[in-house]
Computed example of a mutant assay.
Amino acid sequence: MATSAVARDVVFALRRKIAKIEGTLAERLAPPSDGQSSAGQPVAGLLVRRNGLASARDFFLPTGVERLDEILGGGLPKAALTEIHGTETRNAGAAAGLTLCLVSHMLRERSRPQDLVLWVGTAEIFREAGFPHAPGLDRLFGLAPGQLLFAEAPKPADALWIAEEAARIDELAAVIVELRGNPRELDLTATRRLHRRAQDAGRPVFLLRHSAVPEPTAAPVRLVAAPAPAVLRRTVLGPLAGSIGPPAFAVEIGKSRTALPGSFILEWNPDARTLEPRRDAVPENRVAVVPPSRGRTHPQAAAGAVLAFRNAAEPAAGDQPPGEQHPAHRRARRAG
């Protein structure tokens, strides 16, 4: 009996370590006892931790969308690394907007809503996507301009180092790391360090990526965000024609602890600071983004036949190969 009890304790300790590395919240496993399997079971729907019992809200941040929280297993983990992917660099506003929605909702649930948020990014992504607009932060997300701090790093490795060190600061409620593509420095080891720092500090770290190919990371949740067309603004008398409603996001679950897929169209309510599923249909008679040209009475003619031209890099028969060419920027221009 003593040998089996020791074996159960060893297996349970190993399961806790594996669960903590994978970000599956080892606190949900109850210690094994006589007559109980080593896998552990939730106790009366509560989560077990060292200092007693706690509800699921202590570990998860519900998004407010019932179906999304159900697929995510309770919501987003509060102390973990969470990935948010933008499909393209030009859609950086949608991915950043979804991240700010989650951060704003999280600050509203905290007892200290005036905590600071650090946004770390490389010079490349800030040059391509720009910085968030200060008046919009206050009006849409309830974030005062002084609450959001920015750190611009020359390289992805520097941005990751800043994020790891900043996760230890108690005055920060969350850390956002914004990168582009699949840099070599952002490997599985780097994401494990970020995830472990977030767990130890008890605060979330958001990895915001643009134009990136999904790859293995230590983040337990990955959301893919893209812009969605807005509906008409709702009024007491009904939809207001020609208006633009709340921001909308097309969100797809790329990775979760439950391994369940899901796609949603979510709208941000800036007054309640909550995400809501779309209820209204998008109007078909939307206004054109670009007005028609004044000097043209008829639409552009359809394209004609497509011709196959010779590749410029392949010389035709009888042509002499070009000589060595030097780029113009390697030598100064001649005067006169």
Rank of each mutant, 00 (worst) to 15 (best):
120 V>R: 10
121 G>L: 11
123 A>N: 11
123 A>Y: 11
123 A>V: 13
124 E>C: 00
124 E>P: 05
125 I>S: 15
125 I>G: 11
127 R>Q: 10
129 A>S: 12
131 F>P: 01
131 F>R: 01
131 F>G: 00
132 P>E: 04
135 P>H: 10
137 L>Q: 14
138 D>Q: 15
138 D>N: 13
139 R>V: 12
139 R>P: 04
139 R>G: 06
140 L>V: 14
141 F>K: 07
142 G>N: 10
143 L>W: 02
145 P>V: 07
145 P>G: 07
145 P>Q: 05
145 P>H: 05
146 G>Q: 05
147 Q>C: 04
149 L>R: 11
149 L>H: 11
152 E>S: 04
152 E>Y: 01
152 E>I: 07
153 A>G: 11
153 A>L: 09
153 A>F: 03
153 A>W: 02
154 P>D: 09
154 P>A: 06
155 K>Y: 13
157 A>G: 08
157 A>N: 09
158 D>F: 13
160 L>R: 05
160 L>H: 06
161 W>D: 08
161 W>I: 02
161 W>C: 00
162 I>T: 12
162 I>H: 06
162 I>W: 02
162 I>F: 12
164 E>L: 00
165 E>V: 02
165 E>H: 12
166 A>C: 13
167 A>W: 03
167 A>F: 05
167 A>H: 02
168 R>C: 03
169 I>L: 14
169 I>A: 14
170 D>P: 06
171 E>P: 01
172 L>C: 03
172 L>W: 02
174 A>P: 06
174 A>Q: 06
175 V>I: 07
177 V>A: 08
178 E>H: 14
179 L>F: 12
180 R>F: 01
181 G>E: 11
181 G>C: 04
181 G>Q: 10
182 N>G: 01
185 E>D: 12
186 L>H: 04
187 D>C: 01
187 D>V: 00
188 L>F: 13
189 T>H: 14
189 T>I: 10
190 A>Y: 04
197 R>Q: 15
197 R>D: 07
198 A>E: 09
198 A>W: 09
198 A>Q: 07
198 A>P: 10
198 A>H: 02
199 Q>S: 04
199 Q>F: 05
200 D>M: 02
200 D>G: 00
200 D>A: 00
200 D>W: 00
201 A>K: 03
202 G>R: 08
203 R>I: 15
203 R>F: 15
205 V>C: 15
205 V>R: 05
206 F>R: 08
206 F>V: 06
206 F>I: 11
206 F>A: 01
207 L>F: 09
213 V>P: 00
217 T>P: 06
217 T>Y: 07
217 T>V: 05
